[in-house]
């Protein structure tokens, strides 16, 4: 059995307490949410924090609610809760479609949206969802809260703009009446990380696309998005030809690398193919199909 290196453990009693603990212990402290990325890394001894600050008692980080024209998802909301949320399902099919194919039901009981976002794995499915929906995150430190667009959140693989003594507390998604959304993933096996995934939302009004978002993961898209493809579609009818052209633009935004999940040519192909499939579904859904 693999075992972590020695580590201390503290349970935060509030977000403020967690921030205080982070400030006290500096960069050797790590926040513990679901633990399903961090603990395996610690067991491999690739991560060796000196102290873990457990957020699991913080009810203030839980819950999914509507605030104005946004859906607010607490950082400690689990994948299982996102999957089962009627609020999210009412506004965006993409959540359920994405969550169904993230890890497995047992892992989804522990893994959280905040943990997933902050792990910033370049193959993270929720990052594609968040980027597609042009969501934002609320980050809190001792100096107060700041809000950051998810498309500005990532510094690179496994790196985010959350500071050493800060906590991501919420993820927010704008509500878009009439939006259709969809998530398409190809994986080698259920529960595997994606070979490629694409999430989109599309608003079709008056026969043309008035708003859309395209998020891609595991294919090296900067900030998990494809802005050129989105811009291309705005004002155009969601015809097969236009969607296909946008899908190709989305693939053009990708720089995947080859690994055991597939070679570069295949991943680029998937970026295009899955974008097209997701756009078709989302456009049809927006049009009431």
């Amino acid at each position: 059995m693999q075992t972590p290196a020695p580590v201390d453990y503290a349970r935060a009693t509030s977000v403020a307490d967690a921030i205080a603990l982070l400030e006290k212990h500096g960069e050797e402290a790590r926040l513990l949410a679901g633990g399903h990325s961090l603990l395996p890394m610690m067991k491999l001894r690739l991560a060796r924090p000196e102290i873990l600050i457990d957020l699991n008692d913080l009810d203030e980080l839980r819950g999914i609610r509507i605030e104005g024209d946004e859906i607010v998802v607490g950082a400690m909301v689990t994948h299982a809760e996102i999957l089962d949320s009627p609020v999210l399902a009412e506004h965006y099919a993409i959540f359920r479609e994405a969550e169904k194919v993230i890890a497995d039901p047992i892992v989804r009981n522990k893994g959280t949206i905040g943990g997933s976002m902050c792990q910033a794995d370049p193959s993270e499915d929720l990052s594609a969802v968040g980027s597609a929906l042009k969501g934002s995150v609320v980050i809190q430190g001792s100096g107060g809260k700041r809000t950051l667009a998810l498309r500005e959140f990532h510094e690179g693989p496994y790196e985010t703009k959350v500071g050493d003594a800060e906590i991501l507390t919420e993820v927010r998604f704008p509500i878009r009446p009439g939006a259709g959304s969809a998530y398409e993933k190809v994986e080698r096996r259920v529960g595997d990380w994606p070979v490629a995934s694409v999430g989109v939302f599309v608003v079709v009004a008056g026969g043309v696309v008035t708003d859309c978002g395209i998020g891609l993961t595991a294919v090296g898209a900067e900030h998990f998005c494809a802005p050129d493809a989105e811009a291309y579609l705005i004002g155009k009818a969601p015809t097969e030809e236009n969607l296909a052209a946008a899908a190709q633009l989305a693939a053009d935004a990708c720089t995947p690398y080859a690994d055991q999940r597939g070679p570069v040519d295949y991943k680029l192909h998937l970026a295009c193919e899955l974008t097209l499939r997701a756009l078709r579904k989302a456009a049809a859904s927006s049009q009431g199909a």
Partner: peptide
């Protein structure tokens, strides 16, 4: 709720 206990600390 079921969890994978190899990926959780006893402390938790």
């Amino acid at each position: 709720s079921p969890v994978k206990s190899c990926t959780m600390l006893a402390a938790q």
